[in-house]
């Protein structure tokens, strides 16, 4: 006799953190993503001397499993630049690229057409180029956010990882996981307007404010923290 058992989730109620957010507040967060990524897209466009487009950002309430699968599967290898945000509204920010896209950016930036992330010899310069790219993009994202909110926000030194998306993005969920089982994902996609196919998404920004930073952000943007 085969007895089938799957684990049952125990009943729990920890939705209060997420339930609190109103439609207006989510719209404000969308605008935050919009302005931040708009500036980052402009910076990237100057850096690579080509046109860069942008997706209308999305703000989603998602389970942790859904969050780590937004840029592919949890197991998929991605190139990620992570910065800790410090200052008035701490949090974390990821800039995520597919390995071919990261290679293409580095080739444009360094002029080395043979660069691959699998060649350890050329990795040194590639790592520097990718970190600098992440630094510039996140810097312009944060500057825009800081101008908008009049809050002091500054990025840490960027950390570059080439690893499974789940292993990387779950780190951004840790602070949130102390109060909630869902995440608010402020996601923006950069695109290549010359390429009309679906593959044209060039990068994803994910902004994860720490749980306590939401009230600070809403207050600074003139939205009541509780409604």
């Amino acid at each position: 006799m085969k007895r089938h058992l799957t684990g049952k989730r125990l009943k729990y109620k920890s939705m209060t953190f997420i339930d609190r957010f109103s439609a207006v507040q989510l719209d404000v967060l969308k605008e935050v993503g919009n302005i931040g990524a708009g500036h980052a897209a402009t910076a990237l466009s100057y850096l690579l001397e080509r046109k860069i487009g942008m997706f209308v950002p999305s703000v989603q309430l998602a389970d942790f499993d859904e969050v780590v699968e937004l840029s592919g599967s949890a197991e998929e290898v991605v190139v990620s630049v992570f910065l800790k945000i410090e200052g008035d509204a701490p949090g974390g920010m990821f800039f995520i690229l597919s390995p071919p896209q990261a290679e293409s950016f580095v080739r444009i930036m360094t002029g080395d057409a043979s660069f691959t992330i699998h060649n350890p010899k050329s990795m040194g310069i590639g790592v520097s180029a990718l970190k600098e790219l992440g630094n510039i993009l996140a810097g312009s994202y944060l500057t825009a956010l800081s101008d908008l909110t009049q809050l002091t926000l500054y990025p840490s030194v960027p950390s570059l990882n080439i690893d499974m998306a789940g292993a990387i993005l779950s780190f951004g969920l840790l602070e949130l996981s102390l109060v909630s089982d869902q995440g608010i994902v402020i996601e923006t996609c950069l695109t290549d307007p010359s390429n009309e196919t679906k593959e044209s998404v060039e990068g994803h920004f994910f902004l994860f404010p720490d749980p306590d930073s939401y009230d600070t952000l809403f207050k600074a943007l003139g939205v009541s923290a509780y409604d």
């Binding site: 799957t6 499993d65 969920l173 089982d181």
Partner: peptide, 17 residues
């Protein structure tokens, strides 16, 4: 993530990332 499953013989268990 933050999940738990129990299985018998014919099923493999897997978690990613």
């Amino acid at each position: 993530i933050a999940d738990l499953k129990v299985t018998k013989s014919l099923e493999k268990l897997r978690t990613s990332g």
